[in-house]
Every structure is written in C-alpha cells, then in structure tokens.
Amino acid sequence: MNAFPLIDLKDASSFPSRRVEAWKYSDLRRHLREAPAPSPSATVPLVGGGPFEALGGEAMVFVNGRAVGETQMMVSGDKMVRLRLISRAQGTGHALTARLSVRAGAKLLLLESHEGHGSAYVAHNRLELDVARGAEVTRIVLTDEPADAMSITQAQVRVEAGGLYRQTILTTGAKLQRLETQVTHRARGADVRLDGVYVLSGERQADLTSVVDHVAADGVTSQLTKGVVRDTARGVFQGKIVVERGADGTDARMGHHALILGERAEIDAKPELEIYADDVQCAHGNTVGNLDEAALFYMQQRGIAADEARALLTQAFLIEVVDRIVHEGAREVVREWLTARL
C-alpha cells in the first residue's frame, strides 16, 4: 500500500493530476505543466534561527533542498531537533529528503519550520521517520510560504510496538500546498496523534492529507484538524484510516471541523475509513459551517466590537488543537505563531 505516487520534480510526467483520486483537490499538473529549473544553491547567509529558535536544541538545516549539515540523524536519549526547510528561490524548484531514526525508548521533539522566501518556487520535501519500540516522537510543523509558491511535503512515519507519535501541523497555505503524512502502526500498541490547523486567506490553498495504516493490533489513532478559510481560499482535508485484517483492538478517531468565513471560500473534506477487522472502534466527525450567530450577538451585546468578537471566536475554535500539544515550550511558540496570523 503506497499512497504516495513517486513525484520527481525533474519529470513533469510524474506530477499527479486531479484524475488521481488522492490528488483530486490538489491538481499539481494543472499548476505545473513543466518541470521547474533547478534552484541555485543559496549563498545568502542564514538570518535568525527560525520560529523555534528560542527553544534551543540542535538544528538540521536545508536551503533550497541542499543540506547545510547532515541529512540523516540517529536519535537516542532525549533530544530536541529544529528541522529548518528554507527556500530562497525565484521560479525554480528543489527537493530534499531527510531521515530520522529514533531508537528504542528514546525521545525526540522535532520542530519543523518551512521558511519560504522569494517567490513562485516549487519545493518537494520528503521526511522519513522511524519510531522504534517504546520511543516517543513529537513533530510540530509551522509553514510560512509566499502566496505564489508551491510545496509538497510527504512524511512517512513507521511506529513500532508501544511507540508514541504525536504530530501537529499548522499552516497558512501557499498557491498549492500539500502536507501529506503516512503513518503505519507496524507493531502492537502504538499510539498516534495527528493534528492540524490551517488558516487561509487570499487565494491560498492548503491540503492536509493523511493515511494511517493499522497493520498491528491494539493501536490507537486520534486525529483533530481544524481550519478557517477566508476570501477565495481553499482548505482540503483528506484523512484515511485503514484497519487491516488482524488489527484487532484498534481505536481510531478522526475529527475535521472547518469555518468558512468568506462568501467564496471553499472546503473540501474526505474522511475515510477502510476496515477489515471487526473488534475495532472507529469514528469520524466532520463539520463545515460558520461562526455561531448567537455567540457573536452575545459578545457584541456585552460591548465587544463585531470584528473583535469574530477574531476571539475564531481563535477559541482553533486553539483547541494547539492545547493538545504536550510540550509546554513548543505549545507557547505555536500559540503565539497562530495568534499573530489570525
């Protein structure tokens, strides 16, 4: 089972179009008819340490697809890594692959930032993450990309017995932005959480797609994604949970909730369940709507201006996802990041 068609930025024929069901709402071929010219190696010195600088930790940096240091890392003990994917390009394309293996019993806080500068670039990021027996990994992703950029991020995560994987992605989108996560419960008793927030305005698009494959028994998956779209922006959520034969005792839950705050904004959602085992508990919920008029009225009546009331309600709606981040320092960085973008 491979949900990722092999995309090669050098080969336009590998770009999926909307005819590929998993790419129905993110037609890469329509936006990118030809393979982009390769991005030059950026010579400009790095400025700052990214949004997670204050938290310290080790840095793993890629600029225009080229690693400044290592492209692979083996993690043992208790580690914090800032994975910075920096694009500084104009109309060109670049790709990278980063690999992290987290050893049995180790702990990793992976703070990933997609820092886009320049314009109209195409970035293809691939991340391979192995979570060994009893290991604990938290991945937090913040993306800031220009409105005319395109980026595809594909993460492949394998979780072994008793492993814990928590992920929170926050994005403001791009011209076409796909954030894909494929997680496999490879052995008994893995615990996975996949959360996401998208805040989109203008003509931006973001596509949060995930496939969680329960191959082994007693796995837990919990997903919560929330989003807000304004103007003519488009939010896409595709979540698929597969429970293979024999993966008994699986408990999988998925929620996607979105607010459409612009007359011409769009939400496309597809929460999928594919289940081949009977001793399971699986559920998904999906809602699309607007802010609660009664709550807005109540707040205005208490002297809060309409705009402010809207902003408060929107923030309250989204912050639930941020509150699920366990690491306190990271949670506060994310909270500030999100508040600044509402």
Binding site: Q281, G285, N286, T287, G289
Partner: peptide, 17 residues
C-alpha cells in the same frame, strides 16, 4: 466527500464502525 463552496452552509457528518 464534502465540497462546500458557500460560507453560509452548515454541514455535519459523522460515522462510526
């Protein structure tokens, strides 16, 4: 599949297995 192209829509979906 849910495709909403209007801000005033209210759509709810729930599924259990």
């Amino acid at each position: 599949y849910i495709e909403a192209r209007n801000g005033s829509a209210q759509l709810e979906h729930e599924a259990t297995t």
